[in-house]
Design a protein around this nucleic acid. Structure first.
Lengths: 222, 222, 222, 222
DNA sequence: GATGAATGAGCATTCATTCAT
DNA sequence: TATGAATGAATGCTCATTCAT
């Protein structure tokens, strides 16, 4: 996925692997018109190929959407995995996770739009299709929270699966409202606010944002 | 909207105001099949009326979806407004807000499904249509957070508009994953976990869930 | 049919026999929108009555069109019959016929429009329905031409049925193009030109239009 | 356009350019059922193609009618132009014009039926659409009459535009009533009668059809 | 592989007509 | 008589998918 993915304009692409060109074109077209309003022929001409050629690479229109979902969820999953791996402690891992997710949306707005808006509509996708990449994504978040609890860094009065989902929902909504808004605030700032609130709520010892803190020690006193 | 709204089965209804019957039928049908897959005639027969009669009450299929959105956003908005009004302090208001939203989804699962899944798809709705009820909903949340900050109860290092959106995203995702899951955990429990995390992250003095706390006093020391 | 028949505007009528009000409204509406594009409810509201009431007076939408046709063909037939009866000789009768037809169109343009344009479309009307009034109209013209031939005033080298039809076609087209045109020339002038050409072509001794003529005297010679 | 165009039966055609096949099928179907009663799928199956294929060649059902009109008006226009060009004098040109028009109707009765009956109905066609071919047709007739007047062959007491329209109306009606009638008289005879009447009425010196006459001499006396 | 003409199932919407009041 | 809410049959057009070239 090259940088021109984020262009909402849809001129024919003439280089690169065909399957990838179709996916790139599809992101743009789906983001512009929405999945249902988008025609397969729109995607084809944006990709600079014939309509029929689409079907040499994808089983159906919906298969394009699913592939798109998998492709981007993998990117997000690996992005957040990387960000988490770089950090030794739970605090850093959560910050990395949030930043990773949210800043990928900043880098690829059209993709973010498709993921947040269009994906919820396809009954097949949401109801029947179980995405491996999405599960990997959720799993790494759940695991991180659970480990934090085991290590005593995070409180034990929440269920990791619930909170992981809530965090995902918050991040997803952030990405959505950000792509929809006109005046876009830097995602790094948004990510920091979210991190502080979530970590503050999840941790035994909440961070004190920028200021130095004495409280942690005391906090552990029951 | 009576309790049978939540039935996913679609036997013809034979009583009540016709416009309302259409809306009730539409929730069921849209939840079952998804908005795009649902046919107008499905809605009509679920409502026990002729296809053409739909158009005496709604301009188009999409108008049904919009009406549905408004109807339920108003319910959610008034539900959370009520729950907040009953509580004097920010803590109680936030808890009421979260519980109000999430438990309405528990009571009306099909409606929740339509709101969380189907509504994101209609380009008109999300992109062009600006819902008064949704804005009222967001506004009350933003205001509550802002007041909490002014009162010194909440930290000042977050922007109410950002966090309000994040909370909404989390609640929306909770409603979505809850309606999708097989074994449904009581929403009250989920709500409590979310409340504690969010309030813990937002407040100057985080709650200590069940246990007694000494920390608050100390927390205010910079 | 009162003079406001010719108004293309369609405000509700509130007086007069209901059946007649429906016909008056129908002429206006059909002339404005065309028969197929016109809704029965348009006619009803232009007539100031409820939709269903139409069906107390007419069997169907098409029945309105047929009644309209009969009503106006009778008017045209009686108009031209009157004009012919006032004249003793073939020449005068033909002039009366032409003037009668064409000037009725001038007086009732919307009716003329419906008769010339809309009537040809209804397959039932043209193909299955045989109008008594239209036949009466054609018959009087055929008879007049035949009598002219028997009297030796008109040439014998044409078939009255053929020429009657041709004259009707010419007059019908005159009415049509007149109602369609912006700058409308007085029908009296048009009628005179048509009369002179037709009579000139049909008569043993053609008229000499504006110039002084000696021929009239001769015309009467068998 | 091959000769089977005139068959009113509508068996699927399997050869020839597809656009032309659609037009041929449409003439038959429209003549049989009328434009409004005809379904697009009727035309498609008569043309031996799928419904959707129609829309690869025509924008809409109405576009077929318009194309039909243009196609046939061009044929008529070129037919009468040819017939007129072959004749040196006004008399011969008028005869050629009348014969050309009327005998084309004899050769292509279904097309004649569609042109005379169905075309008046489409509001777009008659009211909004201005046909180039129809104007060319009328123009050549008007010019011929005007030239006749300038040359002193035709009388000057008529307006070419008016009489051209009247002649067209007469010919159109001839075509219509001929296609509607059971026992069809040869169009050549009809054409001759019309020619004699019209030329007799238009000319300074009318033709003396078959029999010798003495009147002409007298006629010329002012 | 690539094409793009052809396919034909599918559906929102209209509107003449009915009938309970 | 008069109403007008309700009906439901009818259809032009779209567009994902196929397949002969």
């Amino acid at each position: 996925m090259t940088s021109h993915t984020s262009k909402s304009e849809s001129r024919p692409r003439t280089s690169g692997d065909k399957r990838e060109r179709i996916l790139e074109a599809a992101v743009d077209i789906f983001a512009q018109k929405g999945y249902y309003a988008a025609r397969v022929s729109d995607v084809a001409s944006a990709a600079g190929i014939a309509d029929g050629t689409i079907y040499l690479y994808f089983k159906s229109k919906e298969a394009i959407l699913i592939s798109l979902f998998e492709y981007w969820m993998e990117r997000i999953a690996s992005e957040v995995a990387l960000a988490m791996d770089e950090q030794p402690d739970t605090s850093g891992k959560l910050r990395g996770f949030i930043r990773g997710h949210v800043m990928l949306a900043e880098r690829y707005p059209t993709a973010a739009q498709v993921l947040t808006v269009e994906l919820r509509q396809s009954s097949k996708l949401i109801r029947e299709y179980r995405s491996p990449a999405f599960h990997a994504y959720m799993h790494s978040l759940v695991e991180m929270l659970a480990r934090g609890q085991r290590d005593g860094v995070l409180r034990s009065n929440f269920e990791p699966r619930i909170l992981a989902r809530a965090i995902f929902g918050a991040l997803d909504e952030m990405a959505l409202s950000w792509t929809m808004s006109k005046k876009r605030q830097p995602m790094a700032e948004i990510a920091e606010q979210l991190f502080e609130v979530f970590y503050g709520g999840l941790a035994q010892t909440p961070v004190q944002s920028t200021a130095s803190r004495l409280t942690p020690v005391i906090e552990n006193i029951p």
